[in-house]
Computed example of a mutant assay.
Amino acid sequence: MDTPQDTSHAGPRPAALLGPVEIRQLAEELDITPTKKLGQNFVHDPNTVRRIVSAASVGADDDVIEVGPGLGSLTLALLDTVRSVTAVEIDPRLAGRLPQTVADRAPDHADRLTLILQDALTVMPADLRTAGAPEPTALVANLPYNVSVPVLLHLLAEFPSIRRVLVMVQAEVADRLAAAPGSKIYGVPSVKAAFYGDVRRAGAIGTNVFWPAPKIDSGLVRIDRFRAGGEPWPIGAESRAAVFPLVDAAFAQRRKTLRAALSGHYGSGVAAEEALRHAGIEPGLRGEKLGVADFVRLAGVV
């Protein structure tokens, strides 16, 4: 005869992750058709969300902010691992269903979730405080593809408590974010992301793990933010306001030399050349040749 197992000392039960059947059922229940406007593609593969959580290197002392939780695939995997998840969702139907999904599939972790119904491009620290959510230590998200870079840069700017980022974006965007100076795809997103920390590709994601399947592959990007007190340059609002306009101007017309591209910023080509030479930068170079440290030096931040 089998002896009943004593489960009185068992730990929290792991979340029951969502598969293709559950994703379709939830979408049908909510009468949701994923929209290109909101950049919605729902992950339906449990192994993929586990892989994202692993690549993010988050643990029991992390408070994660997730953007675009959708039907909850990644949210459930995060709740298994981290101290708390603050999910920012713009779609009222999805936001309204997420707490129930978590209660149904991760009842032992439901108290770790805070939901904010808001556009991630407008969310600020005060919104998290109002919701009773802690300061985030990490951003882990399948970002809405149509606004992935603006959302990423907004959250890095407004939440200095974020020390690590792991986001899924279009493969082309992932390549741009992680590009090195001198490459054809190196540009504004590359420099602005690198302003905050070390950026690298963290893997590739195929189309078959999504519903609906997008027409292009996706990529994981990891950013390890510079350690507080050990930053190579100040990364606050004041230095950002000095550096980012230079980056924008340098890449506005990629074929122009820096002397020409920055003439509007400095008032004349002569003034631009003087500033460039003062920073030890050859005025005949193009913006794609400069690393973020060059832009920081040109801005006089360090």
Rank of each mutant, 00 (worst) to 15 (best):
L121S: 11
L94C: 02
V149D: 06
L98I: 07
A110Q: 15
A120Q: 02
D119Q: 06
M124G: 08
A131G: 11
S148G: 13
L117I: 06
D119G: 06
D111K: 14
T114G: 07
V123G: 01
L121G: 11
P99D: 11
D104E: 15
T86A: 05
D111F: 09
V140Y: 02
V88D: 01
R93P: 05
T86E: 01
G132K: 07
T130P: 03
M124S: 14
S148N: 12
N146F: 14
P125I: 08
V82E: 01
A141I: 03
T81Y: 09
R93S: 13
A77F: 07
V85P: 00
A103M: 07
T101K: 05
L98V: 09
I90S: 11
D108T: 09
P92C: 03
V140D: 00
A106W: 02
L79Y: 05
T130F: 06
P134A: 13
V82S: 01
V123S: 09
R112W: 01
A110M: 10
T81L: 04
Q118K: 15
I116E: 06
L117S: 12
D127H: 14
V147I: 15
P144G: 04
T122G: 14
L94H: 01
T101S: 07
L128S: 05
V102I: 09
L79C: 03
I90Y: 09
L117D: 11
N142W: 05
A126Q: 14
L78P: 00
V88K: 00
T122W: 10
T86D: 08
A141H: 00
A95C: 09
P107N: 14
T114P: 04
T137Q: 03
A131S: 11
E135W: 10
L79E: 03
L78Q: 01
L78T: 02
A106C: 14
L113H: 10
S148V: 12
L139E: 00
P134H: 12
L152H: 00
D111G: 13
T114R: 14
T114M: 08
A110G: 10
R83K: 15
T130R: 13
A95N: 09
